[in-house]
Each structure stands twice: as C-alpha cells, then as structure tokens.
Design a protein around this nucleic acid. Sequence first.
DNA 1: GTCTATATCCTGATAGAC
DNA 2: GTCTATCAGGATATAGAC
Lengths: 207, 207
Amino acid sequence: MATGQTKQRIIQAAEHLFASHGFVRASLRQVTELAEVNLASVNYHFGSKENLIQEVFRRHLDGLNVEREKAFDELMAADPNPPLSDLLTAFIAPALRLSTDPVHGEYFVQIVTRGFVEYKDQFREFLSREYGDINRRFFAAIAHKLPHLPDQEVARRLDFTIGALTYSMGDFGLTKLADGTDREDYLRATIDSLVRFSEAGLTRTPT
Amino acid sequence: MATGQTKQRIIQAAEHLFASHGFVRASLRQVTELAEVNLASVNYHFGSKENLIQEVFRRHLDGLNVEREKAFDELMAADPNPPLSDLLTAFIAPALRLSTDPVHGEYFVQIVTRGFVEYKDQFREFLSREYGDINRRFFAAIAHKLPHLPDQEVARRLDFTIGALTYSMGDFGLTKLADGTDREDYLRATIDSLVRFSEAGLTRTPT
DNA sequence: GTCTATATCCTGATAGAC
DNA sequence: GTCTATCAGGATATAGAC
C-alpha cells in the first residue's frame, strides 16, 4: 500500500464496519481487508482495537461539537437573550442535520448509539468530559428562559427533548422519508416540528 | 445439576449477562458458568445461542405487551373516548414502570436497547410482527383526539413522545434518582411530567 | 512503515459415554 | 438430560524480516 494513506484508509473502513456490524462483531481482519491494508498496520498505527474505536468516536463527535458551539455562539452574539425557540433550534439543528448527512450521517448515528449501548457509563463519562461544556451552556441559557421552573424540572424536560432528538436521529420511528421528498425539506420540517414540540413541552404550565 | 431447573437457570443467567455485556460479548461459557450448568446444555435446550437470545427478548417484551394491552383495555372500558392525558398515561406508564422495576428493570432496558442496536431492522420487524397491534390501537385512539392534525404530523409527534419515553427508560439523562427519594414517588413524578410534556407537544397549535 | 508468519486464546457447536 | 472432550474456526496481538 502506498505510504501515508494507511491510517486514513483504516479509519474509513472501521467507520463503515463499526456502524454496520458493531464494535464487537467487526473484526480487525474485516477492517484491514476492506481498507486493503495489512492486518498488522492497525496495531502499528493505533496500538489496539480499543484505541481505533476511540478514534472513530472522536472524529464524529468532534464534528458535532464544533457545529453546536458555532450555533450557540452565533445566536448569543446576535442577541444575548434570544427567544427559547431559537435556543432550541441551535441545540437541535446541528445534530439532526449531521445525522441526515448523506455521506456520514448513517455512520454517525449508528456509532454514537452503539457507543451508548456497548460502553454505557464509560461512554457517558467520555461524552461529559470531552463535550460537556457546550451542553452546560445550553442548559443554563434554556433554564434562564424558564425562571419559574426549578432546575430539576428543567433538567427533566430537557431530557425529554434530548430523547426525542436522539430517537429522531436514529430514524427508529414511524415517520419515514417518502420517495420524492427533498431531503432538505424533510430535515427542515423535522427540525421545525421538534422545536415547536419541545417548546410547548418545556413552557407548559401546570394544570 | 438437579433436573428441571436447568432451562430456567440458563435464561436467568443469560438475561443478566446479555444485559451487562451484550449479546455478542457474553459467551455461552460465561452464561453456563454463572448458571452453574453444563456448557452443552444450552444447545440441548435451545438449539443455538441465537435461539436463546430470542427467548430472552420474548420474555421481556411479552411482559410489557400484556401490561400495555391491559392498560389500554381498562381505559377504553371505563370511557370509550378518554382524555388525551389518560391515553398517554396508559401508553407511557407500563413501559416506565417496567424499566424501573428493581428486579428486572435494568435488564429490560439494556436488552431492548441492544436489540435495536445489534439487530436493527430485523428487531424492528420482530417488534412490529409480534407486538405491533397494540401500538396501532394506541395510535388510532390518540390520532382521534387530534382531528385537526394530519396523520403524518401525529406520527411525527408521537415519535418524539416515544423518543422521550425511551430515553427516560434508559436512564441516560441528566436527572437521577437522588438518594433517599422513594422510587415510587420518583416514578410517578416522571410519568406525570412526561405525560404533560407530551400532551403539550402533541396539542400545540401552529404559531 | 509494511509485510509474513505465528503465538495464544476464546468462540459456538457437537459426538458420544453415561 | 447431563456430562466430558474436542473440533474447527476466528479473534487480537506481536516478533522479526524487509
């Protein structure tokens, strides 16, 4: 194999196979075969399978994190006290957009979901450590828009929002992209619908 | 090993190990060791690992399905046109209650989540085939309470509800059961909060 | 940096005695 | 129904030539 491309080829193949078969099922033999590189090169470049898995996580989550920080900062720069719906859009849109990306979207969702399931607490710690900051900033800004609610209730309702978002990203649900529908139209409609749904849920007053 | 208990012991051990390590990682050797039965007995009683996995799925999902049908039927018997919040409670409560069950709750959630991730479409087909009926009845009843909404939008918002429910079941979120809080109180509060959140999201009018 | 060859271990499954 | 022993294959990881 030509020099210098090996590492990239491994990551690409790993991304594909981890997403479709899972971290456990996908073997280094399959990865190196698909990448058309030598089996031993994985250990040379990454040290172990575990490290390769971390690298694949990181690549995907870094991308999302950058987008979310950008969305948050741009929003706050334009208006330090933005309406709740704008905050929710900044929170929701980057994730949903990434998950429907025609190139990496499917991989992204599968890999993150598998991370949750296969590594559980370990993965949550990783997320909190590496990407927790932007989440806390969103939380504070959203809680500020709901001054009548105790923080605990804000957290609960935000969890519902994140759950709805995650489920939508996973394309697990009843709604499917019908043939002929433009992807961008569908995405905008989903973002819009989820923002309004969450806004109603977050601001609802006790009966 | 004393006769007659082997099959049950295997299922119990499998449930435990599949939940904590996943279907792929948990080996039959680990299962039989924990169950204190012979390795070969798995194949004698279940034929293959794959069949054992299906059996574990079925045990958990059958339980949920029975509870949901009971909740739906009881509600409809008392009032053929119940308020939306009651429909949502009947939809949400059995799942959330099962997922926080001190004995099987943790297993239940992990196993269902792993089913989604490790078997994806195959698992969805299984769910729809075996347990789709009660879902369709809930959907029809809920759509009936939202006559001004097209079915597609009802489906979308119900997906958000299911997402929020699933995420809550998985205990993935920010909110944690604080020490000293009564489990039943916490459960009721979560059910109540999610029902109201979803109701607000489902009934929200376009701005 | 890349390769071959291999060490070491674990997997699901089964044949056949009891 | 339960057991031992084993098969056949696949896994990660590495030593060492190039």
